[in-house]
Every structure is written in C-alpha cells, then in structure tokens.
C-alpha cells in the first residue's frame, strides 16, 4: 500500500504540478490582457481588482475541469499498471485538497498584496474559493467515475439531475419571492437569518458536500473494472 501511495504521489503529483503551472500562466495571461485593455492611468488598479476574477477562474478551470476526466482517462491506466483503487483514490483526494489549498493561498496573497484595490480581503473569500474547488472537483469526480462505470449516459443523467435540482430550488425561490406569499416571507426571513452566519459557514457546507460526493465517488470506483 505504501509503495502504491508513493508511486501515485509521484505520478499524479507531476500532473498536478502541470495544473499549478497552467493556473499561474492563465492568471498572468488574464492580467496581461486586462492591462492592455485598461485605461493607462488605472492599469494597476484594474489589474489588481481583476484578480478577484482571474484567480478563481484559472483555479476552477485547471482544478475542477481535470476532475471530470480523471476517472475516465488517467485512473484506468494507473489501475491497469497494477496500482490499487485505494491508492489511486486517496492520492487523488490529497492532490484535490492540495490544489484547493494552493488556490486559496494564492487568492489570499494576491488580495493581500493588492491592498486597497483588492475587491476581496481577509480569510473568508480565500476559504470560499478553497471550498468551492473541493465541492466542484468532487462533483466532477463523480461524473467521471459514473461515465466510466456505466457509460456516458450515466454522466449525462447525473449532470442533468444536478441541473434539475438547481433549477427546482431556484425556481421555487424565485416564484415564492415573486408571489409574495407566506412562503416568500419565510424565505426572506430565512435569508435574513442567514446574513447572521459568516460566509465561512457556507464554505464549510461546501466542504461537507464535497466530502459526501467523494464518498459517492469511492463507492463507484472501489470495484470498477478496467475496460
């Protein structure tokens, strides 16, 4: 097991380093692009303010998108070369958290360096990005694992189900708010009550959600057959 973990740390680590490199390059490219399009007298301000979007965009792009293909493309090769499902899964979890941590730290540092021009300051924004990446990556892993195990229709059904849940919740909230009935009042009260909670609580919810999706992913992957 230990050897398997080490081999996976080595191989998956190299891939993860590539993702980190691509993230940094993407952030820099976005910053350069915005610098070229900003008014000359406000280049610094625009670029620094823009980091509020560049960092999360790049981190989600290179941290979350690959999670969709991990169990369809990379993991089958690792398993076919004698790695255990356990070590492939756990090392992937380690790197997922590692990348989310990297994203949070970068976001925190960039916001700190940006000082007064930064849109976000403090810990909560960085923690939210950390939690968002964990949550979205875990959703992506389940999609990939389902796609590999039961075929592309499994993944399509799963994503469609997620979209439907979001739609139903969103429509319910929207309709209730628009109708202005008792339900809407309850929701406004709920929303007011939520304001009292720090954003980190929502982020924690994301982490818990991510953990639940990871458990689901393991249940799919633990007896997967290599095709």
């Amino acid at each position: 097991m230990k050897q398997g973990i080490l081999r996976n740390l080595r191989y998956q680590g190299r891939n993860q380093l590539q993702m980190v490199g691509l993230t940094i390059v993407t952030i820099l490219l976005l910053a350069v692009f915005s610098a070229f399009t900003a008014p000359i007298d406000r280049i610094g301000q625009v670029v620094i303010a823009g980091f509020a979007a560049y960092v999360p965009t790049a981190c989600v792009l290179w941290g979350v998108t690959p999670s969709l293909s991990f169990y369809t493309v990379i993991a089958p090769y690792l398993l076919s070369m004698g790695s255990t499902r356990k070590s492939v899964f756990w090392v992937n979890q380690i790197y997922k958290v590692g990348f989310a941590l990297f994203s949070g730290v970068v976001f925190y540092l960039v916001n700190m360096v940006g000082g007064e021009y930064s849109v976000f300051t403090g810990f909560s924004a960085s923690f939210t990005l950390f939690a968002t990446i964990i949550f979205l990556s875990s959703i992506g892993e389940v999609a990939g694992a389902l796609s590999y195990r039961v075929g592309k229709w499994g993944m399509i059904f799963y994503i469609a189900a997620l979209v439907m849940v979001c739609l139903v919740v969103g429509v319910a909230f929207g309709l209730s708010a628009a109708s202005g009935g008792e339900m809407a009042n309850m929701m406004f009260e709920f929303a007011d009550a939520m304001k009292a909670f720090p954003i980190t609580l929502f982020a924690l919810g994301g982490i818990v959600g991510g953990a639940l999706f990871s458990v689901a992913c393991w249940l799919i992957v633990r007896r997967v057959a290599i095709k």
Partner: peptide, 24 residues
C-alpha cells in the same frame, strides 16, 4: 485484489485501443 505487494509481481500489458473513448 487491492493488494499492492501481490500486484507488484504482475504485469498485464493490455491491448491498446486508440479509438477507445476512455483511453488516453
């Protein structure tokens, strides 16, 4: 099954399929 020390003695070099939707 899921035993790294046993799997370390084995190599199953599978047929590669370039058109396999799941293969890299």
């Amino acid at each position: 099954w899921e035993n790294q020390s046993a799997l370390d003695h084995i190599c199953f070099s599978r047929e590669l399929n370039p058109t396999n939707a799941y293969g890299n």
